[in-house]
């Protein structure tokens, strides 16, 4: 057992943190939901970071750690799927051209980055299909600018050329999708907590910073405990690439996010309702991920099959 990043992984983490610095603050005049940075995506591409999962010294764990770190930025980009799901799709050698960035269309619902994605991953229960966007229909992607989710959302109409995966491939891709989502949620939960800690340390009520009130301190501490647990389960799942671990990680992420989202908004009060505090960038990304890949109910059933069927 060894629960510390190895030297290569630490080096990647350091490089990611360095790269992230320039994206660490949201523009003062930004008051929207989807704060997308194409530069971020380009720099990750150019730095070769989308390939780390495939490098033995680093592997998916290092990718999950990078996703976790980058998810804490106010800027967003299609990072998680490219880092963890792309390499798996590459390995499957499908008769579909696999190009970054990716989107997931779960149960025909709007997808993140769906308007710009080059590879579309369709999920319907346990079924998984892949399609390239290099087809005339791509133009039909319907952006949803009024979405409250802090990702660029779009609907994709029925795409005819979906290549449906066999069960074992589908399970591998589902697992990768779940780990990627869990790692992203771990970062988002952490960022929501960090932002809230800053807020309550400054904001005063009855003459004291509200962060001195015990009721709030205890709740925020419980949130912090959940956040770390989500990260651990995501890392374990990234390391093992096990379907049960993946479902468990995402279940715990979605379950914990439900609690954390409510609490951080409660603690941030009216400030958290404004688009001037960054809180919504985390919470409205988390909300977008609450229902992904089965949601809590679906992920729990997947955990049941993977972890309890031998009992």
């Amino acid at each position: 057992m060894d629960l510390t990043l190895n030297e290569d992984q630490l080096a990647v983490a350091g490089a990611i943190d360095k790269l992230a610095e320039q994206f660490a603050s949201s523009p003062v005049d930004f008051h929207g939901f989807a704060l997308v940075s194409e530069t971020l995506q380009q720099e990750l591409e150019e730095g070769g970071y989308f390939d780390i999962a495939a490098v033995p010294e680093m592997g998916p764990l290092s990718a999950a750690d990078a996703i976790y770190r980058l998810a804490q930025l106010p800027y967003t980009a299609e990072v998680a799927l490219s880092m963890l799901v792309g390499p798996v799709l590459d390995e499957l050698a499908l008769p579909v051209e696999i190009q970054r960035p990716f989107t997931v269309i779960d149960n025909q619902r709007p997808g993140r980055f769906a308007a710009t994605a080059k590879t579309l991953i369709f999920v319907d229960g346990e079924k998984v299909g892949v399609a390239s966007s290099d087809q005339p229909d791509q133009k039909l992607a319907e952006p949803l600018p009024d979405s409250l989710y802090a990702y660029p959302m779009a609907r994709i109409p029925e795409t005819p050329n979906i290549h449906w995966l066999n069960d074992s491939d589908a399970q591998r891709v589902q697992a990768a999708l779940r780990v990627a989502t869990a790692a992203e949620m771990a970062g988002l939960i952490q960022a929501a907590i960090t932002t809230t800690v800053e807020h309550v340390s400054v904001r005063k009520q009855f003459g004291h910073p509200i962060g001195t009130f015990q009721a709030l301190r205890h709740r925020l501490s419980e949130c912090a405990v959940l956040a770390g647990g989500v990260r651990w389960l995501a890392f374990k799942a990234a390391w093992s690439s096990d379907a049960g671990d993946a479902a468990l990680a995402l279940l715990h992420a979605q379950e914990s996010a439900t609690r954390v989202i409510y609490d951080v908004h409660q603690m941030s009060g009216a400030m958290g309702m404004t688009l001037e505090m960054d809180l919504h960038l985390w919470t409205y990304r988390l909300k977008a991920l609450m229902s992904e890949l089965g949601g809590r109910a679906g992920n729990a059933q997947a955990v049941g099959e993977a972890c309890f069927s031998s009992l």
């Binding site: 709007p110 949803l144 979405s147 409250l148 409660q266 009060g269 009216a270 309702m273």
Partner: peptide, 28 residues
């Protein structure tokens, strides 16, 4: 609603979106 009809607050169901916007301030 967010968990089970997530498209609601993506602008697909205006009245559900409106409830969401009203609901989130309930405790605040």
């Amino acid at each position: 609603v967010v968990e089970h009809v997530p498209e609601a607050i993506s602008g697909v169901h205006p009245m559900l979106l409106a409830h969401h916007q009203r609901g989130i301030v309930a405790g605040i």
